[in-house]
């Protein structure tokens, strides 16, 4: 904890130092950036943009998980599915996220659905690959144990398979979030009238670096909060049975 706080302070100081070397229009300092951010808060519409973006992040992530988890699990369990799908998962992973966004906006229209479809499709392949690798590590000897002790197929799925897949689902949730929010701002820049990505693009066009940095800072803080506070605590509670790794 002490080290983390120290490194944050060091980073802010470095930012401050660098900002003296450049004009304000290129690199505003931490103080000015925070001031701009505070003004944005006072103006009020910051929440509208932030929530619009968060909604897309959640919607896109949900779609990505809904596609990626079943595909990954089936690929890990069934060899035929693995052979049929692995090339397509690789293709889907290779297509640039910009292409998904363009396809979605042209085929579905410039609307919310298209944005979420673009986000979901871009991140689904990574989640599928994550799950696929994970399911391969499942301990099948435990299924035999459950079987000789009379567990039904449903009990085996729910109480022996699912707990083993859950860590990989959680890992892919965190991993997926990291991808999804980066795509979301890109999708917003391309085809939405609000959200953090739209704001970033707007201020970029006006060459206002103070606003660009202010929005970047805000979004990063919100995402780090979700990642470090919410998801990590959830994992700690879910997987308290795991051996603690001492470093």
């Amino acid at each position: 904890m002490f080290v983390k706080v120290g490194s944050i302070i060091a980073a802010v100081l470095a930012w401050l130092g660098l900002s003296f070397l450049f004009p304000e229009t290129i690199l505003p300092g931490p103080f000015q950036t925070t001031m701009v951010l505070a003004e944005n808060f006072a103006n009020g519409d910051i929440f509208q943009h932030l929530f619009a973006t968060l909604g897309r992040v959640i919607g896109g992530l949900a779609l990505a998980m809904a596609i990626g988890i079943p595909v990954g699990v089936i690929m890990g369990v069934n060899r035929f599915a693995e052979k049929t799908l692995d090339i397509w998962v690789m293709v889907a992973l290779t297509v640039p996220s910009l292409c998904y966004a363009i396809f979605a906006f042209i085929w579905i229209g410039l609307n919310e659905t298209a944005a979420i479809v673009a986000i979901g499709l871009t991140s689904a392949p990574s989640i599928a690959i994550n799950l696929w690798e994970g399911v391969k590590n499942i301990d099948t000897r435990l299924f035999k144990m459950a079987k000789v002790f009379n567990a039904s197929r449903w009990v085996i799925i729910r109480r022996v398979l699912f707990p083993q897949v859950l860590p990989y689902i959680m890992a892919s949730l965190r991993f997926g979030l990291g991808i999804v929010w980066k795509i979301t701002v890109l999708v917003e820049l391309l085809g939405r009238p609000d959200g953090v990505g739209f704001e970033l693009f707007y201020w970029y066009q006006l060459a206002n670096m103070q606003q660009v940095l202010a929005w970047t800072l805000l979004f990063t803080i919100v995402m780090l909060f979700i990642e470090l506070v919410i998801l990590q605590n959830m994992e700690r509670k879910l997987f308290s049975w795991r051996p603690k790794v001492k470093i």
Partner: peptide, 10 residues
């Protein structure tokens, strides 16, 4: 079994 085969999360 030869190995304990316990469910590690229980």
């Amino acid at each position: 079994f030869q190995d304990p085969r316990l469910l590690p999360w229980l």
